[in-house]
Amino acid sequence: MKNSNRILLIFCLPAFLLYSTFVLYPALGGFWYSLTNWNGLDPTYGDYVGFSNYKELLGDENFKQSLLFTSKYVIYMVILQNIIALLLAVIIESFEKTKNVFRTIFFFPNMISMIVGGFIWLFIFTRVFPYLADTIGLMILDESWIGNPQYSFYSILILSLWGSVGYLMIIYIAALQNIPKQLLEAARIDGASKLQINWHIVRPLIANSITIGVFIALSTSFKVFDQVYALTGGGPGRATQVVSLNIFSEAFAMQSRFGYASAKAVVLFVLILGITLIQLLVMKRKEVEM
């Protein structure tokens, strides 16, 4: 091994140690629990039950339902989050003086914990909207934003987009700023229209940022928890129960089946791993290097 590589490895060590203690070790532990019938309480960690938790998962309608709901959420989020973030980035970059102000405003929600953001929006949906509907007659707001499953899906989307778009926007702004000015100028002199410049020059040059953007949106929205927990708690009933919430309630509510919940978590992990790997492979191919 080259000396410089060894030094680099040593520099990684502290981070790796922390990562192993707080992420790898619990994750492996979780896999072990998924093979037991531990109830989260028993000091002997339950009995080994083999793969029976996984077998039971196949027939679990509530888990399937929550997977479907999460997939729908992921599709909406990946598309909307990236489109809105990119649009915001383009628009804000075109401002001259107020650039920084708007950048801060749109990034701001990202700095608030989503639980807090959730409670803020819960108040807006349950108190402010009905108030607006009653007093100034904005009847479009007079819906059950939390109680009607059809609308509460959009409530969750609104909250999640509000909280996460700013982060991707910063990535896209950085990508846009990295595009060499001379390329754009040359294209303009050659008579390319705005649309043509955006499609043929800007798009390929920010492709690697789009890969990152889609990757972040995919992996975070599969794991969505706090937004839903704060806003609807998965309700009414199980109408907005996402996978992580289903896992959480299996482990800490219901019958406290920690082992079974761990099996669900392992399945979710494998799913996210698979889908993001495919996404990275496909999108990496389309990137160009300068």
């Binding site: 109680g147 309700g235 009414p236 009933g237 199980r238 109408a239 509510a253 219901m254 019958q255």
Partner: peptide, 16 residues
Amino acid sequence: NGVTDETALMLQEYYL
């Protein structure tokens, strides 16, 4: 365990 939690969710959906 779990019966009360299930009842809670079911009654929400029943009301809906």
